[in-house]
Write a protein that binds this DNA or RNA. Structure first.
Length: 261
DNA sequence: ATGACGAGCGTGGCTCGA
């Protein structure tokens, strides 16, 4: 089962790239972040016309997440539990079946948190606490669980080109990194780091200052696996070539293949 | 040497992102 995450940075602006990538990659499930669309504005028809199933959790102007899949999910849920007053659309989750195997897949867009010293940073940290609580609950079950998305966290110094530039950024603050480590300590496996120790392994390159041609990137899009999912891990890929396409997102897809059946 | 990002919203120039 091929499961992927991609911060698409505006699904309406990126529909051609999305369709090309779906054709090429044929994922069983892909979680999108930053669709920047309400549910009614999502380009659902073009995607469904090619046989895909679409579930959205949109919001006007920014944020928004979606799950696109070959077959329809079961038990779909929208929104991260733990705060009924949170109106930002950043979480969607469903169960996908392949033969005898069911996999619970969560797609998340974790708050950026900048600038420091504002409620945006406290929102990020409180959102991460809620994610911890949710992950702990999912890990108590035995269904393979994949929790993936744009985490907006640079986990380690080697996950960026120039750590000194990020010291006062919410993506690299000790509090953000500690919270990410607490997720791992629950028993989740970072799929990319389980597959490679290679330097300069990135998933995002800024549009500005020639970041892509200079490979000045950061690794912030992560696929975390429960033990039951990690035991099934076959391959991990970062689809870097997509960053060279016309009108690209600043993020590229990250895909894992799990053994099922 | 200079200016060098992009989407959404909505029609000018903000907000938001990382």
């Amino acid at each position: 089962m091929l499961i992927a995450t991609w911060n698409i940075n505006g699904v309406k602006a990126r529909i051609d790239a999305l369709l090309s990538w779906l054709d090429e990659r044929q994922p069983d499930v892909v979680g999108l972040q930053e669709i920047k669309s309400v549910d009614g504005g999502f380009p659902r028809a073009e995607i469904e016309a090619r046989g895909w199933h679409v579930e959205t959790h949109g919001q006007k102007g920014f944020n928004g997440v979606a799950l696109i899949s070959k077959s329809a999910p079961e038990d779909l849920s929208r929104g991260l539990p733990g705060d009924d007053l949170d109106e930002q659309s950043r979480f969607i989750e469903g169960t996908y079946r392949a033969g005898a195997t069911a996999v619970r897949v969560a797609c998340l867009y974790l708050p950026n948190g900048n600038p420091l010293g504002t409620d945006k940073f406290t929102y990020k940290l409180s959102w991460m606490r809620r994610l911890e609580t949710h992950a702990a609950r999912r890990l108590r079950g035995e269904t393979p669980f994949v929790m993936m998305g744009d985490y907006n966290v640079i986990p380690e110094p080697e996950d960026c080109r120039d750590p000194a530039r990020w010291t006062d950024d919410a993506l690299y603050r000790p509090e953000s990194r500690a919270s990410y480590r607490r997720l791992l300590h629950l028993g989740l496996t970072d799929a990319v780091r389980a597959s490679t120790d290679a330097a300069e392994t990135y998933t995002f390159w800024d549009y500005q200052n020639g970041a892509w041609p200079k490979n000045n990137g950061i690794r912030i899009d992560h696929v975390l696996l429960s033990p039951e999912a990690a035991d099934r891990l076959e391959t991990v890929a970062i689809d870097k070539h997509v960053r060279s396409w016309e009108k690209p997102s600043d993020h590229v897809p990250v895909a894992v293949r799990l053994r099922v059946g």
